[in-house]
């Protein structure tokens, strides 16, 4: 399932002409990567080791702690990218890659 979502994100990233769709697809790719890291530390019926270590099985907290950072970076990226796209649209009236001339 993770691979399927990854391919959908990659396909959209490459073929989308609209910049907002591109950013959404990139978010899907990043989300897939983050999700696969979180699942690597996941166990069914295990508790989260918050403040103290539970007596029963507990999930690996390292991926969760690390991915929190990656999620924050992703949110910053999205906010910044969308802000630039809006500014670009205000300047040029388009956000279609095929209509953008770089000069």
């Amino acid at each position: 399932m993770t691979l399927l979502i990854l391919f959908i994100g990659l396909y959209g990233l490459i073929v989308s002409d609209n910049l907002i769709r591109k950013i959404m697809c990139l978010t899907i790719v990043q989300g897939t990567v983050i999700m696969s890291f979180l699942t690597s530390g996941f166990q069914i019926n295990a508790a989260a080791p918050i403040l103290s270590v539970p007596e029963s099985a507990f999930v690996d907290p390292v991926p969760q702690a690390l991915m929190l950072t990656a999620i924050v970076i992703g949110v910053c990226f999205n906010a910044l990218a969308l802000a630039f796209v809006v500014r670009y649209f205000q300047q040029h009236g388009t956000i279609e890659v095929s209509e953008i001339h770089e000069r």
């Binding site: 990233l13 970076i73 670009y88 300047q91 770089e102």
Partner: peptide
């Protein structure tokens, strides 16, 4: 802004 957007998309793809 387009230069910035382009840099962002390429940079974020490699970061993934």
């Amino acid at each position: 802004y387009y230069a910035s957007i382009k840099y962002m998309i390429i940079g974020a793809s490699s970061s993934a």
